[in-house]
Design a protein around this nucleic acid. Structure first.
Length: 456
RNA sequence: UCCCCAGUAGCUCAGUCGGCAGAGCAAGUGGCUGUUAACCACUGGGUCCGCGGUUCAAGUCCGUGCUGGGGAGCCA
């Protein structure tokens, strides 16, 4: 007999003469005459109830089944006479695949996220984490679908890179050398013949492909060796980076906005049961927040306008507000959570606080940068129109103290066939946090890597 | 890296003024019931995070380290 996934059985919602289900026991309720098992196979949030009568030949073994044990069940799928479920399986055969010992850490009760983080290898067996990682998978698919529909091409950019300092943070060094001193290492002896590290962004590579295939995107792991200890930062995370030729900052903001709205709509349409769980148990305001994102245009304002709003707000901020300083977390939160109560796009930042590749505006003071800020999370997207003018780019790099010869290939893209182009980076985990209401990035990635934490 | 808070049974936590180590849940045993985080009774279960100090006496006070959480910075 062919095994059925519980999701398929519940989706069909009609009795069957015989079914085969395999999964893990979430809970058991026993009596003298029969025993109820709730089976979960990971295919969906819901369990299926299995009723085993005491007449089954191995009933003595069935009553010894523990939480988390694995079973293979055949029986009739019937309309349930009890309340709480429409269908249940009347077991004809309960094959015990694995009996869990009684010290199984996951109990039939709520555990804290902090405790579950210490057993990251077992936490996907819980309702909440099962739901997170099913949604994470669906979102990945939705992202490819969005770009495919828009005519983008999916580019795989290198994980190991020799481009130092892309302006995005500290790098993890990649080496095969046994002994490395901090300063004067002979990198010419190393595997690549020069210093190498894990990528902090695929952007520079993606730009090269945008300038040939038109519209492209990357979706892959990214590494930052920052000693960040916050609920929003991980040393290894996944980033989505679209890059578009013949595209200015306005169109860039438009794509980013459409992207976020598409993904949220997709989640609502395709992940309802899992999403409902987050609305009910994680964030009661979640649906309201998500609705506010898909039902109206994102508020767009320049950095200057944002500063003016903050100054006029009369709020007492810990950090002063003035043109030329970057927006602090408390400022972003004021704009998204209090002033606009929704996503905000801030653009045209002072050039002094943004990296070299962002296009210099005519005022010579600001660059065509844009950040999308969302409630609770803060910065979800950072992007810009790229500097396509060779001379301006060179002088910006010099101002930043970069060695131009290291970027010879990047500069050649502005020597040959250079056109206006734009792109942005979106933190996948932050997107999942935003959509699920989960407040710690460590809980939306399978095995989180943070400073001092590389277990699992 | 900086600031704040916490660490007591498998889990969540209480522990008063420094004076015998506690509860709920989980687990084990028995009972009961078409049960729904089932229910009822009984039983077992402790390096009070580590190290050092003060004291007749430290889970409790002091110092220090480690781990976790919240916030900040860096950013996505």
């Amino acid at each position: 007999m062919k095994r059925e996934k519980i999701k398929q059985i519940l989706d069909k919602n009609s009795p069957m003469d015989s079914v085969l289900v395999k999964g893990w026991v979430r809970t058991k309720r026993e009596s003298k005459e029969f025993t109820f098992l709730e089976i979960n196979d990971g295919s969906c949030l819901k369990n299926i109830q299995v009723v085993s009568d005491h007449t089954l030949e191995n009933y003595d073994d069935i009553i010894k089944i523990t939480t988390g044990s694995a079973v293979s069940i055949t029986g009739k799928l019937v309309v349930s006479p009890g309340k709480g479920q429409s269908l249940e399986i009347q077991a004809e055969n309960v094959d015990i695949v694995f009996i869990n010992p009684e010290n199984y850490p996951l109990q039939k009760k709520r555990h804290t996220d902090e405790f579950l983080r210490t057993i990251a290898h077992l936490r996907p067996r819980t309702n909440k984490y099962g739901a997170v990682f099913r949604i994470r998978s669906e979102l990945s698919y939705a992202i490819h679908q969005f770009f495919k529909n828009m005519g983008f091409f999916y580019i795989h950019t290198p994980i190991i890179t020799g481009s130092d300092c892309e302006g995005a943070g500290e790098l993890f060094r990649v080496t095969t050398l046994k002994n490395i001193s901090d300063e004067k290492t002979d990198f010419y002896k190393d595997f690549f013949g020069k210093e190498a590290s894990l990528t902090v962004s695929g952007q520079l590579s993606a730009e090269m492909y945008a300038l040939s295939l038109g519209d492209v995107y990357t979706f892959g792991p990214t590494f930052r060796a920052e000693n960040s200890n916050t609920s929003r930062h991980a040393a290894e995370f996944w980033m989505i980076e679209p890059e578009m030729a013949f595209c200015d900052i306005e169109e860039n903001m438009g794509v980013a906005e459409k992207f976020i709205q598409y993904i949220i709509q997709y989640t609502i349409d395709n992940c309802k049961p899992d999403l409902d769980m987050f609305c009910k148990f994680v964030d009661k305001e979640l649906m309201t927040t998500l609705d506010s994102v898909i039902s109206r245009d994102f508020k767009r304002l320049t950095y200057k306008e944002a500063i003016d709003i903050l100054i006029k707000s009369g709020e007492k901020f810990d950090y002063g507000v003035s043109f030329g300083n970057d927006l602090q977390s408390e400022h972003e939160r004021y704009l998204t959570d209090i002033y606009y109560k929704g996503p905000v796009i801030v653009y045209n930042y002072p050039k002094t606080i943004k990296p070299f590749y962002m296009r210099l505006n005519d005022d010579n003071k600001t660059v065509a940068a844009m950040d999308i800020l969302v409630p609770r999370i803060g910065e979800l997207i950072g992007g810009s129109q790229r500097e396509e003018r060779l001379d301006v780019l060179k002088s910006r790099m010099q101002e930043s103290g970069l060695n131009l010869s290291d970027y010879w290939w990047y500069l050649e893209s502005r020597t040959y066939g250079s056109v206006p182009h734009s792109g942005f980076g979106l933190g996948f985990e932050r997107l999942i946090m935003f959509i699920t209401g989960i407040t710690n990035i460590r809980d939306v990635i399978s095995f989180p890597r943070t400073p001092g934490n590389i277990d699992f």
